[in-house]
Design a binder for these strands. Structure first.
Lengths: 332, 332
DNA sequence: TTGTAGGCGTTATCAG
DNA sequence: CTGATAACGCCTACAA
């Protein structure tokens, strides 16, 4: 491996001159520059980034904490993160946490051990809680599912408004008993969406029936099971609002398995607008989220934080859009 | 940030002793060890990994080159990679290449610039082709879609046998005109699967009809479009073999849109057995691949290569399984 | 414009 | 068993 010293010898200059030639070519004389560049290419010299990072005390690595990479929504977010990071000269260290807080803390410590400069957390948990970051800004951005009192910049959807919009769509179709397949209890994201659901019911003068709220875990399987519960309860809902398209796809399967039709007997709506949403049968009515934008925004906020630039707003709300397809229809 | 020197002062020993206490506690006297450990915790000392990496000339980072992270099959592979890497003390630098070779070469150069120790490439392209790695083993493992003359360890499926098995299943159901929605032309993976498809046809005495081979790009959209082509061709197939579940899901949508039923009029089979395969309507007959195992195997092969251990076989073939569900049925 | 030299934090070598 | 010291490769005052 050729290092800067070899190049210097080859060019007959000092290492400082080589370094300068590479970093600010204009402050060395044209003749020297030419000689150095020739030596660089002759030696096939590539700066050792490990050394550069060590010296500059910055790795330009970002840790991404994702609950499950197999979730197609998160996969898109990560795609956005990767793209933005690369554009700004950063690399992405991917960590699949499966929602385990000890794992998250472990990965977050990659920042304290200087393997990475900052963290993008896609879940509502602060893995630095124990650490002291009194003096400097917490090197973290919280995106998608966001803490209630975030100690750092955030990127999220107005989940409450989105859920309200979707619920209103169902109410407009004549539905009065609307089931909801939620995310895990205690999640701020789910709480906000339930609030939006309640907002819509209340505005329409529909009483809340707690039995129509079933928890899931965002997977198709959990949607399938939760739909089974809803079908079994007396006063069966005529519409089901799922907190993710994956659960909606599971729910539709369950509804069909019960010999009912979607949306003929029961309307089903999802959330996220994943690719499969439009290929489902029937195609899913859903709330589209700008998944890649979540990732890109998170990256710029984090890099702003890391580099001390904080002009940009610290708490970003991204827009959603109601996408009406065939899985929802008038109340039978 | 407290460094080893501070700890040494605090404990009243030399930095060497601190380093030794942390690395091999048994070679320092119990008294010293206690003093050092006390100082370590008092100073809340965390070794600076950048420095460690710099000195050891190893980052313990692995670059993963993935064509599209949004593909659920690759997402699972990455999950396996991440899990195995973490267990072995490595981190994963994720790079979404979108199949662009310049991007792949750029990311691969993270190894030559010492940001990472090795590369896991999930596509049939050698991003190091230009580089000279004569003396030492190429720090790469090629998994999933594998080069024909791989310059490194590989992990793959016996794609030819798998495609043959699936095609035979369709032939057993009485199908004689079997369409195939392939991957991109020129891909070794697709070529092998087409070969397996041909093997099965030939064994059954069915002549190959080139018009029944349609290329796609593994997305549901491309499956949808390709199915449209197949439906339009004269001598329409009674079964369609898709090279990915995602394309199969797209194909099913197209078949239904044409007013035909699956499998009543046309059988459709996929490949991969993604989660959505069993939630499709009808549920997909497919070839199950051990996605996470691809990732785990790739990681161990790569680490073996990097650490000079090469006992394990260099070219691993992973098992597949035919999963028969409702999307395939007897020829009408 | 160019060279010299110190230091980033750690570990390994070599004495004591 | 422990301490002093020299690297690792690079950048940047400071000096010439």
């Amino acid at each position: 491996m050729s290092n800067i010293r070899k190049v210097a010898e080859l060019a007959g200059v000092s290492v400082a001159t080589v370094s300068r030639t590479l970093k600010s070519p204009d402050i060395v004389s044209p003749r020297t520059r030419a000689r150095v560049l020739a030596a660089v290419s002759e030696a096939d010299y590539k700066p050792n980034l490990m050394a550069v990072q060590f010296r500059s005390r910055r790795t330009r690595n970002l840790v991404v904490l994702v609950p499950t990479i197999s979730n197609t929504f998160f996969a898109r977010v990560i795609g956005g993160i990767q793209q933005a990071a690369q554009q700004q000269g950063y690399s992405v260290l991917l960590c699949n946490t499966l929602g385990r807080e000890d794992a998250e803390r472990g990965y977050a410590s990659m920042v304290t051990t200087r393997q990475a400069d900052g963290v993008i957390q896609l879940r509502a948990y602060n893995p630095f809680a124990a650490d002291a970051y009194a003096d400097t800004a917490l090197p973290m951005v919280n995106a998608c599912e966001v803490l209630d009192s975030p100690p750092c910049p955030t990127v999220k959807l107005d989940n409450r408004a989105a859920a309200r919009t979707l619920t209103e769509h169902l109410i407009d179709l004549g539905h009065r008993r609307i089931g909801m397949i939620k995310g895990p209890r205690r999640s701020p994201l789910t709480r906000d969406r339930v609030a939006g659901y309640c907002d819509a019911l209340e505005a329409a003068g529909i009483a809340l029936d707690e039995r129509l709220l079933c928890p899931g875990d965002f997977t198709p399987h959990s949607g399938f099971n939760a739909a089974g519960m809803l079908l079994a309860c007396d006063g069966r809902p005529s519409a089901i609002f799922c907190e993710s398209d994956e659960m909606a796809i599971g729910a539709i399967k369950r509804v069909k398995q019960a010999g009912l039709s979607v949306p003929g007997d029961i309307s089903v709506a999802g959330f996220d607008d994943i690719t499969f949403a439009s290929f489902s049968d029937p195609p899913l009515t859903t709330i589209a989220q700008p998944a890649e934008a979540f990732g890109r925004q998170a990256v710029s906020l984090l890099i702003d934080t890391l580099e001390g630039r904080c002009e940009s707003p610290r708490h970003v709300i991204l827009p959603f859009e109601l996408v009406v397809r065939g899985s929802t229809g008038s109340k039978p």
